[in-house]
Design a binder for these strands. Structure first.
Lengths: 225, 225
DNA sequence: TTGTCGGCCGATCGCCGACAA
DNA sequence: TTGTCGGCGATCGGCCGACAA
């Protein structure tokens, strides 16, 4: 059981920053999780069932996880020690969960090697430094014409005021909806409805840099530098 | 280097759910992180400096991390293998960071043991099942009288309409501001301004259960069951 | 080509007491 | 005691073109 050790750099970090070690946090977490919640103790011996875990994850995400297989060749159960417990809450909801870090008592597992990413779809992207108008109460974002043509889905120009709805995903996996219209004299590309909610939520100010990317399949993503 | 192994249950999970393995995510992440970003490769040998890491964390959080010390008794540097890399983004902002999981090649470290929590400040708390009115467009939350007295800071009753601002922290560490007033005939405790933003953001509906706690020092916390 | 503005409208937020369960 | 409602005013979001840099 002393055959190895683990340091998960981030888990130490986040444990300190979000104050998950504090008593008050712990109390609220338990109230939110409800009374039926059995958590193992630090240092306790437990068995880990890789197949069971994979099936659980598949059930909750409804995806096939073939990608997990190649990395490891694990026995059906592993005797482990609980070496860390973090009471956590999901990023995009308030669902509570426990992060339990285990260290196997015996087994050896192959260290994964970097697998070169063969699949490289074309990605268009552009960045823009936000102006005062982009972040003002007026709530409109003007898209430089060239970038709108390269990076955004084409508009139906037969309409008097061409417009469409865009959906962009950020690094958290959150969806953001923007009305994209082409109007004014002279005409220009604008993001209107939804833009305000975005800037408010992300607390954007003049000078911040926004990033849009668009993959081959057309899906739009948005980020902040 | 094959002396041990690690399974961080959650890091596997989140890697799949948020799609951090996808090429598109990776591209956006790199655009957001900027050009100056050197990330080690999977399986690579690196040295980990515990003291340096602790100092970095202290610098960024401006806290003393004495609590880290008792858990481990580490040498000044440890030869490690990089066994996992996750391109991530902070929960409450869009700051990018890398989570690197390391496995020491040689060293043994003592497994931590549960330390009984001696410090137990009194916590008041209450829960309430949300009514249609609580979640309606009107945007007011009526606090049961008893709970308001037990759990919320006392109001200045000399005012014609007693009111104050409450700040409550959720499990993410986010702050929520609520106007708390005592009015109507018959009089009752209400949360008004800020309540709408809260329900919208948390996507609360009738039947959801809200939790408030208040510690000895008066700090308020809020969660969802 | 695009940053900033004024104006305008409608939707929403927040505030209040009246009731009644 | 507290859930629901109607009514209200103020604010804000969103839409638009005018203009100028």
């Amino acid at each position: 059981m002393e055959s190895g050790n683990v340091m998960n750099v981030q888990s130490e970090l986040s444990g300190i920053i979000d104050g998950s070690k504090s008593y008050m946090y712990e109390q609220l977490w338990k109230l939110c999780a409800g009374p039926l919640c059995d958590i193992p103790k630090l240092g306790e011996k437990v068995y880990y069932f890789p197949q069971g875990h994979i099936e659980l994850v598949e059930a909750s995400t409804r995806e096939e996880l073939n990608e997990l297989q190649p990395n490891c060749d694990l026995p059906s159960k592993l005797q482990c020690r609980v070496i860390a417990i973090h009471l956590k809450v999901e990023n995009n909801s308030d669902e509570t969960y426990v992060e339990i870090t285990l260290m196997p008592d015996t087994t050896q597992v192959v260290i994964p090697i970097e697998n070169e990413n063969q699949f490289r779809p074309i990605v268009n992207s552009f960045t823009k430094v936000l102006t005062a108008s982009d972040t003002s109460a007026h709530g409109e974002f003007s898209v430089p014409c060239k970038h709108a043509i390269e990076c955004l889905p084409p508009l139906d120009m037969s309409q008097s005021i061409p417009a469409q709805e865009l959906i962009a995903i950020d690094l958290h996996g959150n969806q953001w909806r923007f009305k994209h219209s082409y109007r004014g004299t002279p005409q220009r590309h604008l993001l209107t409805t939804g833009w305000n909610a975005f800037t408010t939520s992300k607390k954007l100010v003049v000078g911040d840099v926004i990033v849009f990317t668009r993959g081959e399949t057309g899906e739009l993503r948005v980020g902040i530098r």
